[in-house]
Design a protein around this nucleic acid. Structure first.
Length: 609
DNA sequence: AGAGGTGGTG
DNA sequence: CATGCACCACCTCT
């Protein structure tokens, strides 16, 4: 592609006076498309300082110096960034959106994100979002020096010419990338998916800015209690294994010394298989629970507590933001091959369900005067399977509000249907066979896998599977069609057109069959899991409208795949709960038309799920 | 620094 | 033949 700028000598204007700002804005206001990027001293919009805001067209970058100018006091700048008629191209727009919202006071809209577009165009192939450097190499054909970026992080004093050049290049390079990506998005019929991602990203940014409160003192108490328990089991363990080691158990000062490291898989294997005479393939929980030995039991107890402490203890508390006092996790809206969100620092999508000893979710609370509203789709993926497969019996059962797993069991074993608890009473065990099949199938599980999970013979597993498919013949056809199609075309697709690509192995690959099987399973799961993700993202966009309009005081705090949590002013919370689940249902009904969609809201002072 | 094992979530 | 999807955090070990 022929570039409209010189990568070695990009055109830029350093805006450090109000007069220059006016001149730049005069030019930029005429552009239908602008590139936007920022430089700051760090990654957190609340603690890092905004240094530069670069806004450009395809030939020149206007670099607003946020240290020398009070950008909040330039109304024309805010108006430019908030002009809904102007397309703003950014790379990882969420990041810049947050800085500009907090430190310029502008809420950007009509975003085009080169990172998300790249992710949508290569879903399943790379495992990560493309960097601007990679896209620049791919579409502009030159190598971008990212070494200068670090120089902003301990920035002192004046901006150097090198820094300005580097900053200018970012907005300039995005134009050719944008043009080329748009062509490809059209070719792959991914425009609608890309638009959904672009519309979602400012919602995600708003969600991250809001963050969520946790009750720190109570959290610490819970951890302390868990530590006490863990230490008791650790002491028991060290005591119990002493006879198997020739080692001093006291140090020079008479303190107890651990005989071994209980967290070391290698040392545990040595203990179990060499010293205790067991014969176990691994020390995972699934293996240990089938071993009847007091030392093994102690380890299992210890592990339960150690896990909670290490994953959800101090390290999580350290991530509370010093400015807001809240957690602001980093959500990656293209963090998975299927279109689902991933989340980190901390990952709120893996906080344990509430339990007696570790009621972590109860310690996620609204601000005073607010409520948390939690709503999740009920058995959404089963409904998606029913709808997409078009299986008449499954659809009818869901329309009639039947408990699907009981109904499935009644078909499989030719017994009468009753609602869940009654069915369980009359036919003990049957529902517990049907339920794992339903879930397992959505993961492409085989008869052998099912047998292993149910703890029955492979023959029995085969028999159950056949009974299931005889009950729902369209489900088998649908799932097999998905995997055949993926193998033939090299990709799978959700009803809205979100694609996931597969890298087919060479037939000479020693793992050829294993890899092909894996692709077949992934292709069965992708349209189901991906449709859930598509619906959640539409729901995000629908829901955010109510908060943007000012009609409701609050915002989204987080999402866990089929669940959205909002923090809403107390007096509005009950009305909001209805709107939140209605909007989630509306979003899902864009794709799911044959079976009813349900979303159950909960209003309270805790994160309830 | 990265891989492997383990285990938390939907 | 080998056979359940999608993640992230923490730990040990090399």
């Amino acid at each position: 592609m022929k570039l409209k700028f010189d990568p070695d000598n990009p055109k830029y204007v350093h805006i450090d006076t109000l007069k220059k700002a006016d001149e730049a804005l005069e030019k930029l206001e005429k552009e239908p498309v602008i590139g936007v990027d920022i430089e700051g001293t760090g990654l957190d919009p609340y603690t890092a300082k905004l240094l530069l805001v670069q806004i450009g067209n395809e030939e020149v970058s206007y670099i607003f110096n946020a240290q020398q100018l009070d950008l909040k006091a330039i109304p024309r700048l805010k108006a430019l960034l908030e002009d809904p008629k102007k397309i703003k191209i950014l790379h990882n727009a969420k990041f810049d959106y947050k800085f500009i919202k907090v430190q310029v006071g502008a809420s950007m809209n009509n975003l085009y994100d080169t990172m998300l577009a790249g992710a949508v165009l290569t879903a399943g192939l790379t495992g990560k979002n493309p960097s601007l450097k990679e896209l620049t190499m791919k579409y502009c054909g030159f190598d971008m020096d990212k070494g200068v970026r670090k120089s902003f992080h301990n920035h002192m004093g004046r901006i150097t010419e090198d820094q300005l050049k580097y900053s200018a290049l970012d907005t300039l390079a995005m134009f050719p990338i944008f043009k080329e990506q748009v062509k490809r998005l059209k070719k792959e019929k991914l425009v609608r998916v890309a638009k959904l991602e672009f519309a979602s990203t400012r919602v995600v940014a708003e969600m991250e800015l809001r963050g969520i409160i946790i009750n720190i003192p109570e959290w610490k108490k819970v951890i302390k209690n868990l530590e006490k328990k863990r230490d008791q089991y650790a002491a028991q363990f060290q005591e119990a294994i002493q006879p198997y080691y020739n080692r001093r158990t006291k140090d020079l000062f008479g303190n107890d010394v651990d005989v071994m490291n209980m967290n070391s898989q290698a040392q545990l294997m040595d203990l179990f298989n060499k010293r205790l005479g067991l014969d176990i393939p691994s020390t995972s929980a699934g293996v240990l629970e089938n071993v009847d030995h007091p030392i093994v039991n102690i380890l299992s107890d210890y592990r339960k507590y150690e896990k909670l402490i290490s994953a959800f203890g101090d390290s999580l508390l350290e991530q509370v933001n010093p400015v807001t006092g809240r957690l602001h996790p980093d959500f990656n809206q293209m963090g998975t091959a299927t279109g689902r969100f991933s989340c980190r620092n901390p990952n709120l999508q893996q906080i344990p369900r509430n339990s007696e000893e570790a009621p972590f979710r109860e310690l996620f609370n609204p601000a005073p005067g607010y409520k948390l509203v939690t709503a999740d789709y009920s058995s959404f993926e089963m409904r998606i399977l029913a709808d997409l497969s078009g299986d008449e019996k499954m659809i009818t059962a869901l329309r009639e509000g039947k408990d699907l797993h009981s109904y499935t069991a009644s078909l499989m074993f030719n017994v009468d249907y009753y609602p869940k608890s009654e069915f369980k009473k009359k036919n003990p065990g049957l529902r517990q066979i049907a339920k794992p099949i339903g879930f397992g199938l959505m993961y492409g599980m085989s008869a052998q896998g099912l047998a292993a999970q149910l703890g029955v013979s492979p023959e029995k597993g085969e028999e159950y599977m056949e009974l299931y498919f005889k009950s729902y013949p369209s489900v088998r056809k649908f799932l097999d069609g998905l995997s055949d199609n993926a193998v033939k075309k090299g990709w799978s697709m959700t009803p809205m057109g979100r694609k996931r690509w597969y890298k087919k192995p060479s037939p000479s690959d020693p793992d050829y069959r294993r890899r092909m099987s894996s692709i077949r399973r992934q292709a069965k799961n992708h349209p189901i899991q991906g449709t859930n993700a598509d619906a959640i993202k539409f729901a995000f966009v629908f829901i955010q409208k109510y908060f943007d309009s000012g009609e409701f005081d609050g915002g989204i705090t987080h999402t866990v795949h089929d669940e959205i949590v909002c923090e809403v002013r107390e007096d509005q919370a009950e009305d909001w709960a209805k709107i939140q689940s209605d909007e989630m249902i509306k979003a899902a009904e864009l794709f799911i038309k044959k079976v009813p969609v349900a979303s159950d809201p909960f209003v309270g002072d805790i994160w309830e799920h």
